[in-house]
Structure formats: structure tokens, C-alpha cells
């Protein structure tokens, strides 16, 4: 059995199971101290928009996907897509005092989204040659 043969749901479950321990522990130990926001350059340049806080981005993407085993609505997927692609470039510089691997959490959310056919495209912008 290859990943292409399975249903989307099976594949998503597989990703969640693989990361289960890490996700569970991370969600548990996050104390919402928001110190991670200081190390996020996008948060800094967004005039301190709280939705750019790395922990917020992680909890509201992989946190939701994990709890609902990927079965979230399309609207929610859309919100997640914005959080993990538009509001995060995975620069991996975010710092967590209790050692949560935030980039890995975001990366897991991205993997799940890809299985749903949701990912960032880079050619949807306006062409200059029009």
C-alpha cells in the first residue's frame, strides 16, 4: 500500500498518528506565555497582530486538526491555510521557553492540508505583462 492508494482520510490519520505524541505534549505544555511572539519577525512587522503569534498559529492549525482528526470544515481549512502559509514562512526562528517545536507543528499542519489538496500556490498573483 502506498500513500497514493489510500483515501485522504487514511493518509491524514497516518500523519496525525505519526506526530501524535509530539502534538499532544506540545498542546499540553503550552502555557500561552506568548514569549514566542517576540521571536517572530512576521509578528513584529504585523504591528503585533496576535494571530501572528507562533503559538496561536500552531494551536489554531494543528491543534484543531488533531482534535478533530482532520475532519474540520472547508471554512476552517481555509483559515488554517492562511495561518500556516500566509502568516508563517517556516523560518524556524521562533523560540519557545518550554521547548515546543513550533515549526514542526506548523509543518505537520501543512502536511495534512496538502493531503486535502490545500497548499500555497505561487502563480495566482497578477502578471505584470497584461
Amino acid at each position: 500500500m502506498k500513500n497514493s492508494d489510500k483515501t485522504t482520510e487514511v493518509r491524514i490519520r497516518r500523519i496525525i498518528n505519526k506526530k501524535k505524541g509530539m502534538i499532544k505534549l506540545s498542546l499540553k505544555v503550552c502555557v500561552h506565555c506568548s514569549i514566542c511572539s517576540e521571536s517572530c519577525f512576521l509578528y513584529q512587522s504585523s504591528r503585533h497582530d496576535p494571530t501572528y503569534t507562533p503559538s496561536y498559529k500552531a494551536i489554531n492549525s494543528i491543534g484543531r486538526l488533531y482534535k478533530k482528526k482532520g475532519r474540520v470544515s472547508e471554512k476552517e481549512y481555509d483559515e488554517i491555510r492562511e495561518l500556516i502559509w500566509e502568516k508563517c514562512v517556516l523560518c524556524t526562528r521562533c523560540y519557545c521557553p518550554v521547548g515546543i517545536d513550533i515549526p514542526m507543528l506548523i509543518a505537520s499542519a501543512r502536511s495534512i492540508c496538502r493531503e486535502k489538496g490545500i497548499f500555497r500556490t505561487y502563480d495566482t498573483g497578477e502578471s505584470k505583462n497584461k
Partner: peptide, 13 residues
């Protein structure tokens, strides 16, 4: 052949 797809966030990491 069987084909699978995966995307790594950054393959240089």
C-alpha cells in the same frame, strides 16, 4: 510502478 507524493517543507533542512 506505484507512485507516491510527499512534500517536505524544505528539503535543504
Amino acid at each position: 510502478a506505484v507512485f507516491s507524493v510527499v512534500v517536505t517543507e524544505r528539503q535543504c533542512n
